[in-house]
Design a binder for these strands. Structure first.
Lengths: 142, 142
DNA sequence: GTATATGCAAACTGTTTGCTTTGTT
DNA sequence: AACAAAGCAAACAGTTTGCATATAC
């Protein structure tokens, strides 16, 4: 988080961009929560702190983070995009709760390896992969 | 394919639905090609055989197939939905070529098993999962 | 003062729906 | 004749963009 912020500062300066209170608020909210926010969700949240923030600004800010590598755009089984804060560059996968919508991350080296084997069998040159497990989280199982 | 068609016939009768040449054309085209069609792609194709077919009809037809279980809606890393013919009820995953867009299916029991283990560790009640490997297919590697 | 950030409304893409007309039974 | 299918245009959701204004430097 702290590193992300200083990285961003340098990035903005390098690109000749300016600072902005609203953008900072959005970015802070996004990075500290460490969730997989949809744009609308994050918008609803930051609006409570500053009602003058517009949806476009949230969009533009998240796109900015994605462009400089501090966020990843993800598309789960939904129509909308979610943004995930990037901390370290380690690949991970997701468990998605179908009831509460919470998203859990996990890593599994064995699965990674097996995926690479599959790709090799098909002579595929792998760029990335994505594994999502959909179900009900412990809290939502009743 | 043949079984799918007779299943459909019964389904339509049971639901009090009627027949239609356009719908049959769309369904035939979809089932015989056995591809992961986007609606627009299938629309472009069937339009060549019958230019009077409208986009809505393609949408409605594919939704019909999805509702009676003969097609699955899939969302890859795109904004649009793709439909995949369902033959047997076996779960499989996908390799997606980032250049030509072709989609290859594969199954891997070991990966399935490892996914279930992960889910168990998180006390997740699994409904479905989805694994996609993105990269370049043999033909597109240059 | 100049360039960027923002708000707002309008455009845009993929999808769905309402209503009228066409087609099947 | 009655009711489903299809065409068309309009509505819709999520996202992007153009332009005028506000803000940072």
């Amino acid at each position: 988080m702290k590193e992300s912020l200083s990285f961003l500062t340098h990035y903005l300066k390098k690109e000749g961009k300016k600072n902005s209170g609203k953008r900072n608020l959005i970015i802070n909210s996004f990075l500290t929560d460490d969730r997989h926010y949809s744009v609308e969700e994050l918008y609803q949240k930051v609006k409570r702190q500053n009602p003058k923030i517009s949806l476009s600004t949230v969009y533009r800010t998240l796109k900015l983070l994605a462009n400089c590598g501090l966020a990843h755009e993800r598309r789960f089984d939904e129509r909308n995009i979610r943004f995930e804060p990037v901390h370290q560059e380690e690949h991970h996968d997701h468990l998605v709760c179908l009831k509460c919508g919470r998203i859990f991350e996990f890593t599994n080296q064995k699965i990674e390896k097996l995926q690479d084997e599959v790709a090799k069998r098909y002579k595929f040159n792998v760029v990335r992969h994505k594994l999502e497990i959909y179900g009900y989280c412990p809290r939502c199982q009743k």
